[in-house]
Amino acid sequence: MENVFLKKINGKKCLRISKDTRLILVPNGEVSLDVELIKEGILVEVLVLYKLKNDESVFLQTTSIHSVPNTKCDVVVRAVLFDSSCSNYIGKIYIAKDAKGTSSYLEDNVLTIGEKTKNTSQPILEILADDVKASHGATTGRLDEASIYYLMTRGLTEKEAWDLLIEGFFDSILARIDEASLLAQVRKEIYDRK
């Protein structure tokens, strides 16, 4: 499977994909990504990870378009919102009439850490074929206080506990990236972005 790190997308981008691909995106500002699966039997993963501080905001839209039969798409979004940051995500799955045997999944998990964060999630399904599996799950919530408490009883400071849990939140997805150098790049982009 080929890994593609989509850097510096501004505005709208449409990709037509014909082989197994893992797309990685660390969005900034306003981003719209359409992924169309145009060859039978392929698998596409879209990993979207971001962390927002102060009054930063992201307006993100992804669309998984299944035009041909027997394709598989998996979109995972992980966002952490600090301070008064704001995230707005529209994640759409579109399965065309002829795309039988499609399997499509979208998962959107947002951690709200700041005191004035705003999050809007709109996971959308438009299904015009019958022999398909399509689903999405979206959650918005805080970190579990009990987990933080547990880590602090093990000698971590509160800040270290938070950092560790947030790292774990991203790492569960980052673990899919099987190229060490790319993984380092993506990490840097998530944590060290200005």
Binding site: P123, G137, T140, R142
Partner: peptide
């Protein structure tokens, strides 16, 4: 569905399958 969460203390879950 639309989930518009302006308070960070909320716990919101949404699941859909077709």
């Amino acid at each position: 569905p639309v989930m518009k969460i302006d308070n960070p203390t909320a716990t919101i879950e949404h699941e859909a399958t077709v």
